[in-house]
């Protein structure tokens, strides 16, 4: 079984991809292509105080993090989705910002993982 980086939740990734590293690689590459843009859109929606859009955006990106071994960000998105209709804008702003920072911070690890996966696929 392929060993993922310790930064990522390998149990979660093994459950999703098993030995299919080509499948994992495809998902990781899509993630890198789109996640920053989607998190920026979430931040913009919070800034615009568009709660429905915040709900939709956080709902949309929620499962994506688990697919690259970052289930804690799935939980954070879930919290944002839940608070989108009732939470304060300040809360949404700080947590969306936290999510964005986490995404940016973990991107190098994801990119390294892509390189590793390319070597064996």
């Amino acid at each position: 079984m392929y060993k993922y980086s310790e930064v990522l939740d390998s149990v979660c990734l093994d459950n999703l991809y098993g030995n299919d590293t080509e499948y994992a690689l495809q998902m990781f590459e899509i993630y890198v292509d789109m996640i920053e843009g989607q998190c920026s859109s979430l931040l913009d929606a919070v800034k615009a105080e568009d709660r429905e859009l915040v709900r939709k955006m956080s709902h949309k990106i929620k499962p994506v993090f688990t697919m690259v071994g970052l289930p804690r960000l799935t939980k954070l998105s879930e919290q944002i989705e839940k608070e989108s209709t009732i939470g304060s804008i300040e809360w949404l702003d700080s947590h969306s910002g936290e999510l964005y920072q986490e995404v940016v911070g973990t991107l190098p690890a994801i990119k390294t993982e892509i390189e590793q996966l390319k070597k064996i696929s």
Partner: peptide, 13 residues
Amino acid sequence: EDEIMALKSLEKL
């Protein structure tokens, strides 16, 4: 499916 990763994942499955 409107979310690209979920779409590709389902296609693969």
